[in-house]
């Protein structure tokens, strides 16, 4: 994203790859992924099942070890850090998971779930101080201090997601990966959590990578978008530009497939044929060509590189600009 490099970049991903070795062969979950996240922005990472978006989120925090490339966080190459240094770095970067049911230990009370993060990173001198910090965090995410001694099963899905957010905030991170953080919630509760994330972002000057498959949520929350398909970036740019004039044929298909809550919406739908290919044997050249209505022989021969269409938009398509 050309526009981003001139700004203050908090996180830069350069040629990131992740290969999983399986009995059936190598799975290239991520291949040559590059993008950057400006400090203070919310960047949306979208793509369907198997696009690699969850693997990418975890690679940024080295919860999954990348196979190659670089992740620069505030100028430091994370992949060059030893485990003790990486642990210190994780105080500055946190993750919120999708499932508020399985990501909280059912046998721990809320004060211990959040307090554990404080102890691990040496925050708070005494038990009393940590308890006050924990109570403050709960209030900040819209829960009450008297919820401290409860167990996760005593909360609704939305409340559990608030606990997950409080745990992530406990170490006062600068950067948060929100991996489908609102996807499991009912829409009325989802709106509560989206408002909370907006508030926290402003109050704490957070930078967020927001991984989601719901395109209307991403459009609402994010300034910049990265679109993944089969482990490759196919398009990136500002949310406004991508939603108004998607350049890559996959982005166009994805946006036109999303249902709109308006019975009178004009639907100019291009229903994509077929399904995402197996990452065990991705197509040669452009990985999207097997489902692309513009594909020709050249697309099978050459892996498309980034084509900068404007300061707001980059498409990885051989025909970018002419289709």
């Amino acid at each position: 994203m050309g526009a981003m490099e001139s700004q203050d970049t908090l996180l830069a991903v350069e040629g990131l790859s992740k290969t999983f070795q399986t009995g059936a062969g190598d799975v290239h979950a991520l291949k040559d992924v590059s993008f950057s996240i400006p400090r203070g922005s919310v960047v949306g990472l979208v793509g369907e099942s198997g696009s690699g978006k969850t693997t990418l989120g975890r690679c940024l925090l080295r919860l999954v070890e990348p196979s190659g490339g670089a992740v620069r966080f505030d100028g430091t190459d994370l992949l060059a850090l030893g485990s003790a240094e990486m642990k210190r770095m994780r105080k500055r970067m946190q993750i919120i998971f999708q499932d508020p049911f399985s990501s909280l230990n059912p046998r721990m009370r809320v004060r211990d779930i959040i307090g554990e993060a404080l102890v691990t990173h040496g925050i708070g001198k005494s038990r009393t101080e940590r308890r006050d910090l924990t109570a403050g965090l709960l209030e900040e995410v819209g829960l009450k201090a008297d919820h401290l001694s409860r167990f996760p099963h005593e909360f609704s899905g939305g409340q559990r997601q608030r606990i997950g957010i409080a745990r992530a905030l406990a170490v006062e991170p600068e950067f948060i990966v929100a991996d489908e953080a609102v996807s499991a919630l009912d829409v009325s509760v989802q709106a509560q959590i989206l408002n909370l994330m907006q508030d926290l972002r402003e109050r704490r000057s957070l930078t967020i990578l927001f991984i989601a498959h719901d395109l209307s949520v991403v459009e609402y929350l994010c300034e910049e978008i990265v679109v993944l398909y089969l482990g490759r970036v196919v398009e990136s740019g500002t949310a406004r530009k991508l939603y108004a004039e998607p350049a890559h044929p996959y982005t166009r298909a994805l946006l036109s497939a999303a249902p709109v809550a308006d019975p009178d919406a004009v639907r100019n739908r291009q229903v994509l044929k077929g399904e995402i290919p197996s990452p065990l044997s991705p197509p040669s050249g452009c990985v999207f060509r097997t489902r692309c209505s513009f594909a020709d022989e050249a697309c099978a021969m050459q892996v498309p590189g980034p084509v900068v269409l404007s300061e707001h938009q980059t498409s990885h398509c051989l025909k970018a600009g002419s289709i």
Partner: peptide
């Protein structure tokens, strides 16, 4: 289902 597959099934 993913949105592109959802669109196929709704059709």
């Amino acid at each position: 289902l993913d949105v592109t597959i959802q669109a196929q099934i709704l059709d």
